[in-house]
Simulated scan of single mutants.
Amino acid sequence: MTRLIIWRHGNTDWNAANKVQGQTEVPLNDLGREQAREAAPLLAALNPDAIVTSDLSRAADTAAALAALTGLPVRSDARLRERYFGQWQGLLLTEVAERFPEEYARWRAGDPAPGADVEPLDELGKRMGAALHEIADEMPGGTIVVATHGGAARQGCGQLLGWDHTVLRTIGPLRNCHWTDLRQEGDRGWRLRAYNVGPLGVPATPAAPGSAEPV
């Protein structure tokens, strides 16, 4: 049985401000680093065999907290980056709504390709799915922790599970430093075993109010 733990990075100042990050390089804040330290022992207890991370520092620094406990090396893969949000990156969600009202309305309604250079969900799912399949194939029977981002995590998991984006929209956002547990069980394929698992006692910032996914 191969196990993938898909772990969202800790909190950032842009998360707290409801500012669109996408693939912008934004570091963890003090809360995000605390969340990573709280989550790391729980993940270390799962006895991971490998750690792979997005190359963006907020994910890589989250993964480093686990590596410090396990002694495992951390491999970086740019395919695990967050969805590219095009012209919205660096804007508050309120600013997006003001400057791109039509595209914002389509995004809120679940349009997988709303425009404004936002990466289509199909493309996001394919690159995330390819990365996750490759990571799993490299270590059959192992447990791999994958540090990534909220929107990317959801779409990548959907790709492995064969879930359409309309189904994924019914699932709440993955909170900061929380994770999804996927297991490949022989002929049964990939199965969802747990979702939004995380440490107790440390605040975990959800997606911005009214948003369709973490940004």
Rank of each mutant, 00 (worst) to 15 (best):
P101Y: 02
A63Q: 04
L124W: 00
L4H: 13
R108G: 12
T62R: 03
R154V: 14
A65H: 08
Y104V: 03
T53H: 07
V146W: 04
T70K: 13
A40D: 10
I171R: 05
G150V: 01
P120A: 11
Q21E: 08
C177K: 00
W179F: 15
G86P: 10
F85P: 06
G22R: 00
S57G: 12
M1H: 11
R33W: 08
N11C: 11
P206A: 04
I5T: 08
N29I: 09
L91D: 00
Q159R: 09
G110R: 06
E102R: 15
G201V: 14
P199Y: 03
R8K: 09
N15D: 11
G115Q: 08
M128V: 14
L69G: 06
N196D: 15
A36H: 09
L91Q: 03
G198H: 07
G142V: 05
R75N: 01
L31N: 03
D49F: 01
T170N: 02
E103A: 15
R188E: 04
A130I: 03
G151I: 04
V167E: 04
D111P: 05
G71K: 14
Q184Y: 13
I6Y: 00
T62E: 03
D61C: 08
R33L: 14
L160R: 13
A194R: 09
T148M: 11
A113S: 10
P41D: 10
A68V: 06
L93S: 07
W163Q: 08
G189D: 12
